[in-house]
């Protein structure tokens, strides 16, 4: 009985993740979306492409919090947490980027031209450049962290850099793209996904579960990675 209870208390959010993502995939394809000529059915990508970025931002936030926790306690456990959350955050960022590339090819690109001819104009998008910079900063975090052999020094330097990287996330993906004219929603004004006027009430029903579901999936993958590295660490020191 206690074991069963333990199972539920450990698994409830994983079950929630599965339920929410199943809901996202089924309801996300069935829900009625407003017929916008520029987007048509592709606005359903809100539950997938945008959710990737939401997930990435949450994972990077948790990573930064763990970096601060490391600097406060100097417990190497938090250093491992910070690193693994950052890695999975990068994976979701890359997925967001590649899905964005697909979406862009059929909304922004001129169908009368070849795709690479539109590339010149599309590559100038401030949102794309900003997101690329943010991801590159996090790549540098991994390079920096893995290039230092001394464990304590590595943890300390990478924790400080992690906080810096998170501070750079704000201007690169939230502030600068919104100050410049852009094809991407949210250029020069507001957050499109979180704005109540921009998302129809029907889509809103799927939107939040999608964001939470994908984020929980990211956390789930990260916990597996954390468990793996903690075990590895324990075996090395034993």
């Amino acid at each position: 009985m206690t074991r069963k209870k333990n199972m539920i208390s450990r698994w409830w959010w994983k079950i929630l993740c599965i339920v929410l993502l199943l809901f996202t995939f089924i309801k996300g394809l069935l829900v009625k979306v407003p017929n916008l000529p520029a987007l048509e059915e592709t606005s359903r990508n809100l539950f997938f492409h945008v959710a990737m970025w939401m997930s990435m931002m949450t994972l990077f936030t948790v990573s930064m919090v763990n970096a601060i926790r490391y600097l406060r306690t100097f417990n190497l456990k938090y250093d491992i947490y910070a690193r693994q959350y950052a890695v999975v955050g990068i994976v979701f960022g890359l997925l967001g980027y590649s899905t964005g590339a697909i979406w862009m090819s059929y909304t922004w690109a001129d169908p009368n031209n070849k795709l690479f001819q539109s590339f010149d104009a599309l590559a100038r998008e401030p949102k794309l450049i900003g997101a690329a910079i943010a991801l590159l900063i996090y790549f540098a975090y991994l390079v920096l962290r893995d290039s230092i052999h001394d464990m304590d020094k590595r943890a300390r330097v990478s924790a400080v850099y992690n906080i810096f990287a998170y501070a750079m996330l704000f201007p690169t993906i939230w502030i600068v793209p919104r100050l410049l004219p852009s094809l991407h929603p949210g250029g020069q004004g507001g957050n499109p996904a979180m704005n109540f006027n921009d998302v129809s009430p029907e889509m809103r029903i799927v939107e939040l579960p999608a964001f939470i579901g994908w984020t929980l999936l990211g956390v789930w993958i990260t916990t597996l990675k954390i468990r793996m590295s903690l075990w590895k660490e324990k075996r090395l020191t034993a």
Binding site: F25, R44, N45, F48, H49, T107, I221
Partner: peptide, 26 residues
Amino acid sequence: SNGRIYVVIAVMTTILVGLFLYLIRL
């Protein structure tokens, strides 16, 4: 075609394939 619904399918597939590749690596 069909209101560009295949773009959504492509996006969904990309995410699933990406996550599966990552899980296989793990």
